[in-house]
Simulated assay, not measured.
Amino acid sequence: MKNLKRTFILSIFILVLSLAVRAQTGLKNGDVAPNFIAKDSEGKSINLKQLLKQNKAVVLFFYRGQWCPYCNKHIKDLQDSLQSLNAKGAYVVGVTPETNESISKTKEKTKASFSLVSDRGYKIMKDYRVDFVMEETLASKYKTYGIDVAKNNGATDAVLPVPATYIIGKDGKIKFVQFDTDYKKRASIKQILAIL
């Protein structure tokens, strides 16, 4: 019962956050995807241009953190369908503002075996127009429920992405966008596979 109450209260706060994120627009279908180079949590070099040379597409998604039940469900769904996604020539990359330590918790919860990248400095999130700086009052409320966004991010500011999924084609252009400030809405595996 205690966990149910905590989840309900957390959902209310996330809803408040989602209403405040409307200023973000994300990128659109047909836009050229900004290149990025980063290391994933396993130390593997992730370079979008290189991935597109080696794969038919990249499924790039942004998630808030290991504390978010909707993020964890989405990651589990992607992991459960990873063979189907790979069979269609897709490489899956998740981006979060959290530290590698927090990414390890995500991997424990979801069994994710694909690349997860810690976006230190929020450059990838900014390039894809999904970054959102939480107001101090909201960040403080999260802390009362044991979620210190800034600490999870290894930063002094509390920044989260709007949950979003992009499918980037071999030509470097975005073929599919799921961008919605409603934190409950994520791209379905069916939608992703249909585009691939």
Rank of each mutant, 00 (worst) to 15 (best):
I12Q: 13
K141E: 13
K88R: 11
A139Q: 10
F132A: 10
I37G: 07
Y91A: 12
G154V: 03
K190W: 04
A20R: 15
L193P: 05
A38Y: 07
T110L: 12
D180L: 06
P163N: 04
S11P: 00
N100A: 05
T7N: 14
K44G: 05
P97R: 00
V95P: 01
C68T: 04
Y70R: 03
N100W: 03
V92G: 11
V16P: 04
T165M: 10
L78I: 15
G26T: 01
D182E: 13
K111D: 14
L138E: 03
R64F: 10
N72V: 03
S81P: 00
K175A: 14
K111A: 15
G89V: 09
A87R: 03
P97Y: 05
Y63D: 07
N72F: 01
C71H: 05
E136V: 07
V133Y: 09
I14L: 14
A90I: 10
R6W: 08
F36P: 04
K107C: 06
T110Q: 10
V159D: 03
S102R: 13
R6E: 14
L193W: 07
V149R: 03
S84T: 10
K56S: 15
K107D: 01
K2I: 11
L138C: 01
A90R: 02
S104Y: 01
K2H: 12
A33T: 05
P161V: 14
Q54G: 06
K28D: 14
D31P: 11
K49T: 12
E136F: 02
L138T: 07
A187R: 06
R64M: 11
K44A: 11
A90E: 06
E98W: 08
K143P: 02
K88M: 08
N152E: 14
T106W: 01
I168Y: 05
K73E: 15
I124Y: 07
G30C: 05
K184H: 11
C68I: 00
I37R: 11
S84P: 00
N86T: 13
K53D: 08
F132H: 15
Q79H: 02
A112P: 09
I189V: 15
K107R: 15
P69L: 08
K151E: 09
I46S: 02
R186Q: 09
L51Y: 08
L116A: 08
R120K: 13
V130F: 02
I124Q: 03
G43T: 09
Q83W: 08
V16M: 13
D40M: 01
L4Q: 12
A139L: 06
K143I: 07
T25H: 10
G30S: 06
Q24S: 14
T165G: 05
I37A: 11
D180N: 15
S18V: 06
T110G: 09
D131V: 03
Y122H: 03
N86Q: 14
K28R: 13
Y122L: 01
L52W: 00
A187P: 05
G169D: 13
A164G: 10
F62I: 04
Y145S: 05
L193Y: 05
F36I: 11
L27D: 06
K2F: 13
Q178P: 01
K143V: 06
S118H: 00
E136I: 07
